[in-house]
Each structure stands twice: as C-alpha cells, then as structure tokens.
C-alpha cells in the first residue's frame, strides 16, 4: 500500500492534457493574456524615462552599466515569478475547492501527478509568452545588453516552473480564501529584496539573507544573460530553481492525492 502510494505519487503519463484543456479555456479568453503584455511595457517605460535618468551608472562584477540595463532583467525575472504565482494559487484553489474540476479529471486515467505537472506546465507556458513579450519590449526600448539575452527566456521559464510548483504546493495547504492574504506578504519582499533594484553589495552583511530568496537566483541568471557573461556560479543558481521545482511538484502531487483521493 505504502509503496503503491509512493510509486504513483509521480505516475506521469499525460500531463499535456491539462495544458490542452487550458488552451481550450483561453481560446475564447485570449484578451486576458494579451492584457498581460501591457504590464512589462509600463514598467520598462517608467524605468527608461524615469529612474534611468535620475540614477547614475552602477558597478556590477567589475563592469559599469546603466541603471535601466541593471533593473530591466530583474524586472523580467520578477514578472516571471509574479505570473507563475498568480496562475498557481487562486486559480488552482478555485478548481480544487469549488469547481471540483480535478475530481472529474481524476475519475479518468489521469493521475494527480498529471494534473500537478499539467497545471504547472500551463503556468510556465503563459510565463513563456510574457517573457518573450518582455524581452521584445526591452529590445525595442534599447535596454538589452547583448544577443545572449535570448537565454533569459528559458531562464524565466525555469523561474516560472519553480514558483508555480511552490505556489501550487502552498495552495494545497490553504483552507480558505483568507489564507491567500499571506501570499503578498511573501511575494512583495521577494520582489523588492532579491537584488532587484540594487546590487547585492548594497545589502552589506545582510547579503546572505538575500541569497535565500529563490528570486535572487533567477535575477542573477537573467542579468548574466543580458550582459552575455558566464560564471560557474550560474550552475548553482539553476540548481536552486530546479530543486525548488521538483520539491514543489512532488509535494503538490502528494497533497492532491490526500485532498482528492481520500
């Protein structure tokens, strides 16, 4: 019995069916997705026109770059995080508790792991679309540093994967809508204090706290891609995000099993 549960916790066969379902749903609601493209545009414009002019150049890793070039990649990483959290929390809670969508899906050959990975994959796909839009906007506003910046797209997908997995895992423990009020309490500090708006060196002896933030690792990677720099430490950043994604996915599949297959 126990081994049966453990082996089927990650019994994956057709997670893409959940993605197919989401495509069906959003085929009509594509405006919702398009409206998401405006957010990066406004963000980047405000930086380009506003802060960029007010704040001087910044030194990172021995190189001097303009502030806009410093912040834009971080905002791209943060947008990937915000999108993933949005898709994996309230939306998923509604489907578990109210629409009972997953109950009907699990009566078919689909498994909890299919549902978990499928929903997370959809959040990643949306993240991918936003990231591409973000990148194009950055490029149009002359805020990209090198051609390597295209690597920021897969990095953002990884960020989305990690945060969607964790978001869904956390959501599976929520009891009511009011529990979601704690989400911004975590999300906002992550957004502000992940070396997003100023370099790690500014945090002084608190730098180690910043490194605990999963977003910090994403920001470091996107920034590196934008500057076209390579460092072995990037492997560590990737490992942190992959680790979070796998842990989140496993917890989610197990929790869905406990919630829906009692």
């Amino acid at each position: 019995m126990i081994t049966g549960l453990a082996s089927s916790a990650l019994d994956l066969r057709r997670p893409h069916r959940m993605v197919e379902r989401s495509v069906m749903v959003y085929r009509r609601g594509w405006m919702v997705i398009v409206s998401g493209f405006f957010e990066p545009l406004f963000f980047l414009l405000s930086i380009r026109i506003g802060f960029g002019a007010l704040i001087g150049d910044i030194e990172v890793g021995g190189r001097t770059i303009g502030y806009a070039e410093f912040v834009a990649p971080a905002l791209m990483a943060a947008a990937a995080m915000n999108g993933a959290i949005f898709d994996s929390t309230m939306n998923v809670f509604y489907k578990v508790k109210y629409s009972k969508l997953y109950d009907s899906v699990l009566a078919t050959p689909m498994t909890t792991a299919d549902v978990a990975l499928g929903e997370i994959a959809w959040a990643m796909l949306r993240g991918l679309m936003y990231s591409v839009a973000f990148l194009l906007t950055m490029w149009a506003l002359g805020m990209t540093g090198s051609a390597w910046v295209v690597l920021a797209v897969p990095v953002c997908v990884l960020i989305g994967f990690a945060f969607a997995s964790i978001g869904m895992a956390v959501t599976s423990f929520m009891r009511s809508w009011s529990d979601f009020e704690y989400v911004p309490a975590v999300q906002v500090p992550l957004f502000l204090f992940s070396a997003t708006f100023f370099p790690l060196s500014q945090y002084g002896s608190w730098g180690w706290v910043v490194q605990l933030s999963p977003l910090y690792h994403g920001v470091a990677l996107v920034r590196g891609a934008n500057l076209g720099e390579w460092s072995w430490t990037y492997l560590g950043h990737v490992a942190v995000l992959v680790g979070l994604a796998v842990v989140g996915l496993t917890i989610t599949a197990r929790r869905l099993r406990a919630l829906l297959l009692s």
Partner: peptide, 9 residues
C-alpha cells in the same frame, strides 16, 4: 465532452 475524451487519449 471533447476534453473528457482527450483525458482518455
């Protein structure tokens, strides 16, 4: 109905 059938491949 269609998506339900898709869950069955």
């Amino acid at each position: 109905l269609v998506i339900y059938g898709r869950y069955f491949d």
